[in-house]
């Protein structure tokens, strides 16, 4: 079969006709090839081109040329220095984030290191101490140590004893109230440096009910207040004062 009559442009296209089906072409080329499909000339041209292309594919790449692409530095750029890396905004942002996360982690870790059974309740009571006004307490002017009998006689609270370190201080007032978990808390206001004393049930093991004891005095801090806490006979005692540990340390000669 001969090639049908084609225009000059179509003849030109036919000379550039693809020799395999995979290569995509435009509409003009497709229509020209379709018109000439089945002709001896086009078949001969495509067979010729295919054979040449097959041989071209076998042309060996010189070893020295192949080596160009094996080199790691095809185009050598400027080296990444420490200074450049540090100035990179992404590196700066990540560094700041890591420092903040590390800071929070260390802060929480240090906070946990000072934790002891009942520390959560003690912190809440420091907040109570900060918000308490003298009018909220029943006026009582006596030695703090004598209020143990009052708590037992009037409220049925056993072992709500003020330690001997604070037993001799004069009181301004006292009260007994229930905290958020309905535990009975005794609060005493001292004339001495407007110190406040708290007595509350010690924390217990959830399974066995046994009192979770801890030895000596433990310090806690909350909202500008400091507290020194100790446990005795299943009742925790806390002396709270506005300020830091130094103010309380003077009253606790044997702090452990």
């Amino acid at each position: 079969m001969k090639v049908p009559k084609l225009s000059r442009g179509q003849r030109a296209l036919l000379n550039c006709a693809p020799f395999n089906q995979e290569r995509s072409t435009d509409r003009a080329m497709r229509s020209t090839v379709a018109r000439a499909a089945g002709s001896v000339e086009l078949a001969g041209q495509q067979n010729f081109d295919r054979a040449v292309a097959e041989l071209v594919r076998l042309i060996p790449v010189p070893p020295e040329t192949a080596e160009w692409f094996l080199e790691e530095d095809l185009a050598v750029g400027s080296k990444l220095t420490w200074k450049k890396m540090v100035r990179n905004p992404a590196v700066v942002a990540i560094s700041i984030a890591v420092v903040v996360i590390a800071g929070v982690f260390v802060f929480q870790l240090l906070g946990r290191l000072n934790d002891f059974p009942g520390s959560a309740t003690a912190r809440k009571l420091l907040t109570v101490a900060g918000s308490t006004r003298p009018v909220m307490l029943d006026p009582v002017s006596t030695e703090a140590g004598t209020l143990s009998d009052l708590f037992f006689m009037k409220h049925g609270l056993e072992h709500y004893d003020v330690p001997e370190e604070f037993a001799d201080f004069r009181t301004i007032g006292c009260r007994v109230f229930d905290d958020e978990e309905s535990r009975r808390v005794a609060q005493i206001w001292l004339a001495e440096k407007r110190m406040q004393l708290f007595l509350f049930p010690a924390e217990r093991d959830a399974k066995t009910g046994a009192v979770l004891r801890f030895p000596g005095w433990r310090y806690i801090h909350q909202e500008g207040w400091a507290g020194a806490v100790t446990e005795h006979n299943g009742v925790c005692f806390m002396a709270a004062i506005r300020g830091g540990e130094k103010e309380l340390a003077a009253y606790l000669p044997n702090k452990q």
């Binding site: 001969g44 067979n47 010729f48 295919r50 054979a51 040449v52 097959e54 041989l55 071209v56 076998l58 042309i59 060996p60």
Partner: peptide
């Protein structure tokens, strides 16, 4: 018509 077989006999570096 026999061009393809002629090309096959050709060495690739000769074609290059």
């Amino acid at each position: 018509p026999q061009a393809a077989s002629q090309i096959e006999r050709l060495d690739s570096s000769q074609l290059a």
